[in-house]
Every structure is written in C-alpha cells, then in structure tokens.
Design a protein around this nucleic acid. Structure first.
Lengths: 228, 228
DNA sequence: TTCATACTTCGATCGTAACCGAAGCATTGT
DNA sequence: ACAATGCTTCGGTTACGATCGAAGTATGAA
C-alpha cells in the first residue's frame, strides 16, 4: 500500500459539505470574502475561517488581504479544472443534490466555469467555432487555426497577446450539465471577458449563472450560430 | 448555494485513507477480493466490508460474486480517469504521501494506470508514437493516423476491432510521476495487453508496478525509441 | 453432515473534526 | 481616541463515522 500521491487528503478537503459549497461558489471566478464564503457554506464565520485555513493549507485556495477584507480565490487553473472534472463525474452518476430549483435552468443555460463560459451557451459557442473551422478538434484536444486567429482578432480578441502566456490557449472542459465539451483556456477566458465588456452579459450576485441582455443574446446567437 | 452536482459526496468517499488506498489498489486494473482490499486499506475485514458497501453505493465500484469470493473493481473507465486526475493534481502540489520506498522507482518506471501503461515507459511510448507520426497530438487530444493504424496493425493490434467499441480509441492521461501525458483509451489498453501476451512484461503481486523481462525491455525500447 | 473459508451484520467504543459562543486582533472610519 | 467592521483564535460541546470483536450467513470442501 502507500503507493502514489495522497488522494485522501484532497478528497477529505473536498468531502466536507461546507467546504464543497465554498469551492463551488469560488468556481464563479470571483474572489470572495470570508463572510461571503461563510454564507455560501451555510456556516458561521468562525467555522468558515477554520475551513478556509484548511483549504489554504491544502493549497486549494489563495488569500489576498485588502484593507480589512480577506479575499479568497481558487489557487490556480488546476483547481478549477479538478473541481469541474469532479462535478462532471458526479453529475454523470445522478449524484445531483439539487431538487431542480428556480435558478437551475439559468445555470444550465449559461454559467461561469472558473473563468470561462459553460452551460448550453458555452457548448454552443465551441461547436460553432469548430463548425466554422476556427478551432480544430482532435479527440478532446483543441487548437486554434490560422483562420480562427484572424476571425477572433476581428472580434477584438488579441490572440497574439494570449499566445505569449504559458497557459494553454485552448483547452476543452467537460460540461456537467450538457455532458459535452466547452472552451476553456486563456481563449475561453478572453471570450467571456469580451462579452462582459461589450455589455452583452453580466454575472449575477450570489450565483454562477451568467445573464444575457436581450440585445447581447441576439448578438451572441448571431455570432455563434447553431452548428446544424 | 446548492448549485450543481454534489461533489462533497464523492470527495468524502475518496477522502478516507482506507478507502483511498483501496481505490488506489484497484487502479491496478485487476478485480480484487474483499480480503485483499482489506489488506490494501490496512483495516480489518469488517471495516473493509463497510467501506466497500459505501463505495458501491456511491457507484465507484462494482461487485461480481464468484463462488464464495466477491470481486470488486472500479465501476468504469470514468472512475479510473477521475482518480488519475486527482492523483495528478495531488502530485503537482507535493501532496506526496510516500517517503520514497524501495518499490517506488519501479513504480515510476512502469506501472498500470487502470488498464494501460503509465510511468516513464508509458510517456516514452506515447512520445515515440507521436514522433513517428502514428498519433496526432493537438492540445491534449490524441488521434490515430492512417499511418499509425497500419503500423499498429503490423504489431498485431487489431485496430479495426477497437474502433467498433464506443469507448474512445485514444485518450491522453496525465501521468502523476512524469507530469506528462501518456496513452489511455482502448488503444492504450490493447497495447499493454499485447505486452503481457508477448511475455515482455508482467504485473506484480501486490503492486501496480509493471516489470519487464530483460528481453521484453529490449524489444520495447527498440519498438519505441526515445523521441530525441 | 460437518467443517472451513469468505464475507456481512450487529453492537459498542472511540477519536476526530465540525460547530458555535465568546473573546481577541487588526484595520478603517469618525 | 473611540467605535465599528472583518476576521481569527480559544474553549468546550456534540455528533458522526471509522474501527473492531463477536455473531450471523453463504458457499464450497471433506
């Protein structure tokens, strides 16, 4: 026994409901204060503080103090990726916790997955990009084509800038609601940011769902037509 | 709160050390009896029985009774994939549990990852296949080329047969020891099986490591030269 | 039938970790 | 300087789950 890395440790970190809820809340991509996270976890501030300390010690979270606030965020892209893969797995076995609530359809339609767009709209966007030859899909790997590069450049995405980062440009991310891939990576992030900047959509307060304005929705659907 | 799938539940399942050890043992790909798993988990038979019941209820394991034995195995490919991704994550943060023991180098050299070859040799094999144009790698996606298909056919891998299955032919799997990708999917499985059949290598008793015979090692290294 | 092996169920113990109230720091605002 | 806000630390309680001994069931062997 005692072979390989210690999966029990991180399993235990994620295994507590309060911590799991906090992590899920942080999948929204925004850094949150300890008080907000206490609310998300359904525990008091003291308890949340203890949980956050553990998560930080386990390197799942990073802390940034700003004035008298303490903002917590997922430590890096890898944590988001891990959580999303567990969510995908859990969803696949019907380990759904939610009795379908009012917010749920909105969440399935469009939500934030750490830093990029997920849900029905996220899947549609990737499908559309592949259909028009902007992105090459081989297996579950994605790569931007030269065609795609110029297409995106013309929408106002500075692809050259993104390329210089060491983070992968395109990555596929399994969507737990759609059970299909959507676009992650720095390009996925940049696209979502551009939707916010253009005013097509905005984040919601306490949720991960993304709400499109009527005009934004029209533009989005026109830009990314359904791949027949 | 209460958004999305219940990640806490499976986190908790993996979060117990005894259960984590059992799951790790089952990553060897072989079905094991309750008694063997009790040994792997370092607990008594009664305790193991309780753990196994939980893992089965959580759909991580399946049970097959055979005479008076009860064999347990990972429920499906998805579980193996999940565990490996958690291992990769844990290894990346130095959550290594093992003080490097005697078996450890062997494990890093070649081991079974659920049903395919991992470790240094697993990575080398994929690199070599990519270098010779047998496999296309785009991002982290893999696809068999026509060239590769005939190459493998000539080594005695029935690729056409594999293609008919709905399981993906090629998948990349992140190696926790090498931190690079190795080949998973039905092709990865078929290749490892062929090594066993040819007598190049064999599994070890209580471990996930794969041991090559001197002659088998020679053949393997010749077939998959290091991609310079 | 009887014994042995493989495993499960029951019952009780024990340890740990989650939890909250209260008090203690730190930072900001007045 | 004093109060208010945001968060952490301390102390004590509680509850859950991991654990094992012992007894119970099932399968196979003698």
């Amino acid at each position: 026994m005692k072979e390989g890395p210690d999966i029990a440790q991180i399993g235990a970190l994620i295994g507590d409901p309060a911590r799991a809820n906090m992590l899920t809340a942080l999948m929204g991509g925004k850094a949150l204060t300890a008080t907000e996270l206490a609310g998300a976890g359904g525990v008091t501030l003291q308890t949340a503080s203890a949980h956050l300390a553990k998560l930080e010690a386990g390197q799942l979270l990073v802390q940034r103090k700003q004035g008298r606030h303490r903002y917590f965020a997922l430590a890096d892209d890898g944590v988001g990726k891990l959580l999303e893969s567990i969510m995908g797995f859990a969803a696949g076995r019907g380990h759904l916790r939610h009795r379908p609530g009012p917010k749920e359809p909105a969440l399935r339609k469009a939500r934030i997955c750490y830093d990029h767009l997920a849900g029905d709209y996220g899947v549609r966007m990737l499908d559309s990009l592949v259909a028009r030859g902007a992105i090459d899909a081989v297996g579950d790997g994605l790569a931007l084509t030269p065609t795609g590069e110029s297409q995106l450049q013309s929408i106002g995405i500075d692809v050259r800038d993104l390329k210089s980062s060491r983070r992968p440009l395109c990555r596929s991310c399994l969507d737990w609601s759609e059970r299909r891939a959507h676009l992650a990576g720095s390009l996925g992030k940049a696209l979502l940011s551009s939707f916010f900047e253009k005013g097509w959509a905005h984040r919601t307060a306490g949720s991960r769902s993304v709400v499109f304005s009527p005009e934004g929705e029209r533009q989005f659907l026109a830009l990314f037509p359904a791949a027949s």
